[in-house]
Amino acid sequence: MAVVKLQRPKLNFGEKIYFGALIKGFFLTMTHAVKTLRGKSVGADELASSGLGVTMQFPEQRWDEHLPEYYRGAPALVTDEQGRERCVSCQLCEFICPPKAIKIVPSEIPSDDPWAKVEKRPLEFEIDMIRCIYCGMCEEVCPEQAIYLRKDYLITGLKRADMVHDKKKLYEIGGTRVGLVNKWNELK
């Protein structure tokens, strides 16, 4: 580490007595205040402001239509077009999850199941949404493309238990995802 010696700027008398900058500051903050009150803040239009500042008034106003394609909401499990649960409980998401929100209990698929050849699926799959930080690492790491971050952002509950999404809830949020992995089809 190189040592960098900083040269403090030389201030002239006007700058030294500080009042000029102070009054300039008052003007700046007051300009913002007035603009806010008039609903003319910078970026108010793009952000669909409610008319005061740049803020959108939730929940009357929703930003659903403003959500970008890449928005990272609640993580969820998906099934493929044949209704097979894509997750094979490899537990890579459990491993990568930075806040350790995911808990998986793996199990073997019984031999009478149509997808018995896949051999493995999760018996329990729980994501603790209190812990989840919506980082999307689970989606990125999934080798089966079974877990996706959906656009759901209103994850609420009255109890801690409500905030733990179990397998059923995760498939409910996730729905079906078509295409991508064809590894387990007869074509393989």
């Binding site: 409980s89 490899c90 537990q91 459990e94 491993f95 793996p106 073997e108 051999e119």
Partner: peptide
């Protein structure tokens, strides 16, 4: 041990 736990845990 089959399908009990991944070894990296």
């Amino acid at each position: 041990f089959r399908f009990q736990m991944r070894v990296w845990f």
